[in-house]
Design a protein around this nucleic acid. Structure first.
Length: 445
DNA sequence: TCTGGGGTCCTAGGACCC
DNA sequence: TCTGGGGTCCTAGGACCC
């Protein structure tokens, strides 16, 4: 904990929804919900107009629709959020070289490293107000809530106190008075499970928590959490603002609207995800030794299976092969709602072949072909199965009057493929696409 | 048809080594 | 009848955060 209030926490208000309202004036002043729009989607951000109806982050979109049917439900435009976020982060770095982003919409700023010499409360307050104005200018109208205090913990608590569009500076020395009446949930790391454990021993507020001895706390919550909570209950927090943090894992996962039961489809999905993970690893010049799959069963039990290689990999084929073999040991007969692939144990070196030869590996791409249709039905990517002369395949994507079908094996039939006689009467016979380089390649003839 | 996706950190047990 | 002990790595699960 510092002598002056020199840690600033900035949080953009209802960030994703605010970007949508900024970019689409018709949404301004109206309830906007950004999140998964599918059958199993959850709310990522609700605008304040939607919050009036009780719509909250992490709520299922189904429930959000029930509470606020007239809201605009949007699936999100991440490039727009990233662009806006970068503008804000750039502005913050302009203020201090020590900026620690926590997510797209949140960051700590170390004011002790800024140009601001006078760290008195009035000086810091004026500085933070000016910063909030600059955020509005830089983002085209988005507001931020800001908290300033003697530690990260206090700054973060403070930024929450006057949302949205607020500023709270906690004067040094007043931290404990501020915290004591607050519920234990204000402490970062105290979630529903920890709060429940504490409730059972009669601890509801930070003041209650302060009465618990360190030994008792460790007994109750384990070594790390126990010591940590003991300190935070006394507003003791010396964590520095850290600008750069290295990624420890990269993963891709997906929840499907209907439970998966077909193993080959699961393998195909894992293969695709492995390709995405590999792409992101390579983009950042990373490779990792541990490949993990995540499988959430129909009853929401979640299984992780991992395997560790002798040396790091970023190869899509290797990640995919390991992922599929990890899946092979699991019983998925009850149905699977989520599949994911991740790589951890990241090594920060770009993989290089010692013999000067780069092994080019490709994902085992399965043939895909676009099939026109004249149906009004909704095709479910990954779920709808079609049968063709070429074999069985899944609907992999859909556009206007066309579905992409992905075949279940990499083996293609001999001879030119002229038509696909879909079992589904709503699918038209296949015609060769005009150009093969835009929409994925047709199966080799 | 309750319950996302991308992460981080912690715990606990077993293997293995010295 | 004896079966230490510490350190590290790996795996699996869970809590938590935004």
């Amino acid at each position: 904990m510092r002598g002056e209030a020199s840690v600033l926490h900035l949080d953009l208000d209802a960030f994703f929804a605010a970007v949508e309202q900024r970019d689409k004036p018709s949404l301004r002043g109206k309830p906007v919900v950004v999140g998964g729009v599918g059958g199993r989607g959850v709310v990522s951000t609700a605008s304040y107009e939607a919050r009036v109806y009780g719509v909250r982050s992490a709520m299922s979109t189904r429930e959000a629709r029930a509470r606020c049917p007239h809201a605009a439900f949007l699936s999100g435009r991440f490039h727009a959020y990233r662009d806006t976020s970068e503008r804000v982060m750039r502005l913050l770095r302009d203020v201090s070289p020590l900026v620690e982003p926590l997510s797209l919409d949140e960051a700590f700023v170390d004011l002790a490293r800024s140009d601001l010499d006078d760290l008195s409360v009035p000086s810091v307050t004026a500085f933070a107000e000016r910063l909030r104005e600059r955020v509005v200018e830089a983002t085209g109208g988005l507001t931020a809530s800001v908290g300033v205090g003697t530690s990260k913990f206090i700054a973060k608590v403070a930024s929450d106190l006057d949302k949205p569009d607020g500023l709270v500076v906690v004067a040094p020395g007043t931290e404990q008075d501020l915290l004591r009446p607050m519920p234990v949930r204000v402490i970062p790391g105290v979630g529903p499970a920890t709060a429940e454990r504490l409730r059972r021993v009669g601890v509801h507020t930070v003041a209650d928590l302060e009465q618990i001895s360190e030994e008792e706390m460790v007994r109750l919550l384990g070594k790390a959490s126990g010591h940590w909570l003991y300190s935070l209950a006394r507003a003791r927090d010396d964590r520095p603002v850290v600008a750069e943090r290295e990624a420890k894992s990269v993963s891709v996962e997906g929840t499907y609207d209907t439970d998966l039961t077909d193993r080959r489809l699961m393998e195909s999905l894992l293969t695709r995800q492995a390709g995405e993970v590999s792409g992101r690893l390579r983009k950042h010049g990373l490779s990792g030794r541990t490949v993990t799959i995540k499988v959430r069963l129909h009853d929401f039990t979640t299984l992780n299976r991992s395997t560790t290689l002798g040396s790091p990999t970023d190869s899509p084929a290797t990640i995919a092969r390991l992922a599929r073999s990890l899946l092979a040991d699991l019983d998925t007969s009850g149905g699977v709602r989520l599949l994911g692939v991740g790589v951890s144990g990241l090594a920060d070196w770009v993989q290089e072949d010692l013999f000067g030869e780069t092994a080019e590996e490709e994902v085992e791409e399965l043939p895909e072909v676009e099939v026109p249709h004249h149906s009004r039905r909704t095709w479910a990517p990954g779920m709808d199965v079609v049968h063709t002369e070429m074999g069985r395949g899944w609907v992999w994507g859909s556009g206007r009057g066309v579905v992409t079908v992905r075949f279940e094996t990499a083996e293609t039939p001999a001879g030119p493929v002229r038509s696909y006689a879909m079992d589904d009467p709503e699918l038209s016979p296949w015609r060769p696409p005009e150009s093969t380089d835009e929409t994925g390649s047709p199966p080799p003839a």
